[in-house]
Write a protein that binds this DNA or RNA. Structure first.
Lengths: 224, 224
DNA sequence: CGATAGCTTGAGAGTACTCAAAGTGGGTGG
DNA sequence: CCACCCACTTTGAGTACTCTCAAGCTATCG
């Protein structure tokens, strides 16, 4: 999941499970905190998330980190480049994944429908990343966090009375490294949203969106 | 072209022209300043750059712009998502492009080698964009500009005596919108690099790299 | 119930931004 | 051929946002 420019209307996400008639591998179960692969590993499998949330990240030599994306159910992770993974992937919750042989992406390998589905997932990934550029390069801290919460609400928000509630399996510093901010700034921005009564913070991992329209507006506009 | 973390050794770029035995379309010639496509256009063709430089960008409603990438010879432009372009594409110089039918990417369509080449180009694109995230989210102005110049030097730098020279077909504000900075900051950072004798500015569009090692070091390290 | 990691808050500093003005260069028309 | 014009770039001054460093707070887990 990237932070795309949120749309007013719910988008249709590819939550369709990838089906492979042949070479059906058993689902992979990952414990929270377990790593699926590391940067530099050879790609043997791609994975579609069935349940749970994963974190893709890259590190700089001096320790600075960028979280590339969060993997939510339906997302396909582990696209190879030159046959290698170029990010680390860690489970933020217990997770179930459907492995798919890399050959299904690269050679088709007797299952054209699966090949096409993987290709379309890769193309959607490119498009989503382009939106994310805009967010990283051109948005302020409050716009970034508002965009993030909007996308999560739309994708995995649960209706709760008249409001939507979202669960954050990632830490503040994961969010910070995803949005190109510091944990302190993320925390301050959460507080600011809470004080302006746009969100409520039930606990650190549970956010209730009280005024979705205001949040959406903030995601696109500098504070006035 | 994205700003990837520069490597010390020259990478091998895919400058291999895409070959299509059938459905060979005539090369497209574009004048400097001409637009190849706009955000929202339906994708009919992908294009491999033969010569020239193009700019891919997206706009926010309030005018903020993010330059997604610059397209240099060998690059493939116009990957569709849901059949549509999701960026504007404009030629920065006169350019020649080799059009490839979208079907060659999406259905294979009788030319497996071309299909594979396009798929690999898409996968490389994903990897390069992930590097670019690190740059947008986590690097300072001088690191950003140094990274940018390093990548350009490696990719299209011309040897000139003991130094490398690069030609910048894009404006300062194109560079700023690519790196997530303002034109003023880009200009000041250029001046700073010139005063520290790491680069020389022959004219606005021609940069000579006097100390490639220092530039490379700057691209990864906060100023000390 | 204490230890610890994660989160929040505060104060101060620094980087990049904004607004403004001057400088530069390329292109056009007189 | 030169002068003017316009767009682009550079430079300056002041501001603001985010970061850094530091301390206190809060939850979760032995």
């Amino acid at each position: 999941m990237y932070v795309t420019t949120p749309t007013e209307f719910a988008e249709t996400y590819c939550v369709t499970p990838l089906q492979s008639a042949r070479t059906q591998a058993a689902a992979a179960h990952l414990k929270s905190g377990a790593c699926l692969y590391f940067e530099g590993d050879e790609v043997v499998w791609l994975y579609q998330v069935t349940s749970g949330v994963l974190r893709l990240s890259r590190m700089l030599a001096d320790g600075r980190r960028q979280v590339i994306a969060f993997g939510y159910p339906g997302d396909v992770l582990g696209f190879p480049s030159d046959g290698l993974h170029h990010a680390d992937c860690e489970a933020l919750t217990d997770a179930v994944l459907q492995p798919v042989r890399r050959a299904h992406l690269e050679t088709g390998d007797g299952d054209p429908a699966l090949h096409t589905a993987l290709l379309q997932a890769a193309l959607r990934e490119i498009s989503a990343m382009q939106d994310h550029f805009m967010m990283l390069g051109r948005k302020s801290a409050s716009e970034k966090l508002a965009s993030f919460l909007c996308v999560l609400a739309e994708r995995v928000g649960e209706q709760r009375g008249t409001c939507k509630q979202i669960t954050l399996p990632m830490s503040r510093s994961d969010i910070a490294d995803f949005l190109g901010l510091t944990t302190e700034t993320v925390s301050r921005t959460f507080t600011q949203l809470r004080k302006s009564r746009i969100i409520a913070i039930e606990n650190n991992n549970t956010i209730i969106i009280r005024r979705a329209d205001a949040l959406f507006h903030l995601s696109l506009t500098e504070a006035d």
